[in-house]
Each structure stands twice: as structure tokens, then as C-alpha cells.
């Protein structure tokens, strides 16, 4: 018992960063991980939806552009994408805009959040367009026959159905996104993984620091999976296969 107490005592020590205990350092890291994930998830959902729909539209130009978007974000490693946004983009823009971009407070945080969001949006787009094209052609035809415009047939007929179909794969994309947010540490964001490393580099208690981070990721994953399962059952399309 004493051994266990001793093992954990490091977390209640005042951190070398002077901002509270090491447990608090890790919680701050978790907070950043969650903030990045929420922003990225919104960006991924919005951009993914737009691009996903574009991939199914009749216009060849729109299809080609949205196809290029997907290929761009899918074929470059996330880490390299973050470097492109963070180190390269400001140098290519006109000087004043580039300067402004660099000096926005917490620019690395926003770069990570939006970069991760765009990266994930290509995956959302692929899932969504696959769901739309997988639906019976009759649905689209019926909508057209009823006199709905393309826009109306998407918003009223195709999309509501498509979103219900892609819910399970989007859940696993959300879990991936949270894990991928750790890549933000490469541009200096002290998210959860980095705060464990910071704790490690001040205390040299590698096992404790990494175990704590591991447990937090595990709990986060289990919680989100459980919540999503609940919702999944509510939105599942009756008569269609649901992954249990």
C-alpha cells in the first residue's frame, strides 16, 4: 500500500513549471487535447460534408476539384501537413498577412486544430460520398420527380439518410482525430502527450508520467465510445445493418 502511495506521490508534487501540481499539468494537457479535438471535429464535419457532397454532384469540374482536395489531404502525412501550415504558409503569403498569421496569439494551437480538421475532413468526405452513392438511385430520381431542386433533394432526402448511415464510421474517425491531436506537440502545443513528456523531463519519472497519459487516453476513448454507441442506436436506420 505504501508503495502505491509512494508511486503516485509524484503527481501531487509542485510542478517545475510553477503552475500547480503535476496532476494539474496533465489535466491542462487534457484540456488542450479536448479543445483541439472539438475545433478540429467541427472543421472536419463542415468541410467533409461540403466536399463529400461535391464528390457526388453531376458537374465534372466540381467532382474533379473535390477529388483533388481529398487526394491532397489523404496522401500527405499529418505531421507534414502541420509543418506546411505552420512554417511554410506564412512565408508564401504577402508579408503583412504572413506576419499577422504568425503573431496571432496561440497561433500554433489554431494551426494544429484547423490542420487536423482539414486532414480529417478528407476522410469524412470519402465516407459521406460513399454513403450517398450507396443509396438506391430511386431515391434521387424520386426526389427529382417530385420537383425538388438538386439542393432540396440533398438537404431533404439524401443527406439525412447519408448521415445516419455514416454515423458508425464517423465515430471511429472522431476517436482517430483525438489520438491524432497528439501530433500538435510537434509545433509546440503542450497537449496531453506533451505534458506527460514535460513531466518526464522535469521529474525523470518516465513510467508514472506515461502511465498517467495512457490511462487518460484509455478513459477518454471508452467514454466517447460508450456515448456514441448510445446515439448510434437512436439514429440507426431500421432494417439496415448496424455494427454491434
Amino acid at each position: 500500500m505504501d508503495k502505491i502511495v509512494d508511486w503516485f506521490s509524484i503527481f501531487w508534487q509542485e510542478s517545475a513549471e510553477g503552475t500547480g501540481t503535476y496532476a494539474y499539468t496533465l489535466l491542462l494537457g487534457l484540456q488542450l487535447t479536448l479543445e483541439i479535438s472539438v475545433i478540429a471535429a467541427v472543421v472536419a464535419f463542415v468541410m467533409g460534408s461540403i466536399v463529400g457532397v461535391c464528390r457526388t454532384l453531376p458537374s465534372p469540374l466540381v467532382r474533379r476539384l473535390s477529388g483533388a482536395y481529398v487526394e491532397f489531404f489523404r496522401n500527405i502525412p499529418l505531421l507534414v501537413q502541420l509543418f506546411l501550415w505552420y512554417f511554410v504558409l506564412p512565408e508564401l503569403l504577402p508579408r503583412d498577412i504572413g506576419m499577422w498569421l504568425k503573431q496571432v496569439p496561440h497561433s500554433n494551437f489554431y494551426t494544429a486544430a484547423f490542420g487536423l480538421g482539414l486532414f480529417t475532413s478528407s476522410r469524412v468526405a470519402v465516407q459521406l460520398s460513399a454513403a450517398i452513392t450507396s443509396m438506391p438511385r430511386g431515391q434521387k430520381m424520386a426526389a427529382t420527380a417530385l420537383g425538388l431542386t438538386t439542393r432540396q433533394s440533398y438537404t431533404n432526402v439524401l443527406l439525412p439518410m447519408a448521415y445516419r448511415i455514416v454515423f458508425p464510421p464517423l465515430t471511429s474517425e472522431l476517436l482517430n482525430l483525438i489520438k491524432n491531436s497528439s501530433v500538435a506537440l510537434t509545433i509546440g502545443v503542450a497537449e496531453l502527450t506533451q505534458s506527460a513528456r514535460n513531466m518526464d523531463s522535469y521529474t525523470f519519472q518516465t513510467f508514472q508520467a506515461f502511465t498517467a497519459a495512457t490511462l487518460i487516453y484509455l478513459v477518454l476513448n471508452i467514454t466517447i465510445t460508450a456515448v456514441m454507441r448510445r446515439i448510434e442506436h437512436g439514429v440507426a436506420v431500421p432494417g439496415m445493418l448496424v455494427a454491434k
Partner: peptide, 15 residues
């Protein structure tokens, strides 16, 4: 393993 970020696993293993 699926619930952990690859980066964290990399740090774990390296040490």
C-alpha cells in the same frame, strides 16, 4: 493499443 496515440506509443517504446 487502438485507443492510444501512435506518438505516445513511440515515446513509451523508445524508453
Amino acid at each position: 493499443v487502438r485507443s492510444l496515440p501512435l506518438l505516445l506509443v513511440i515515446f513509451w517504446f523508445f524508453f
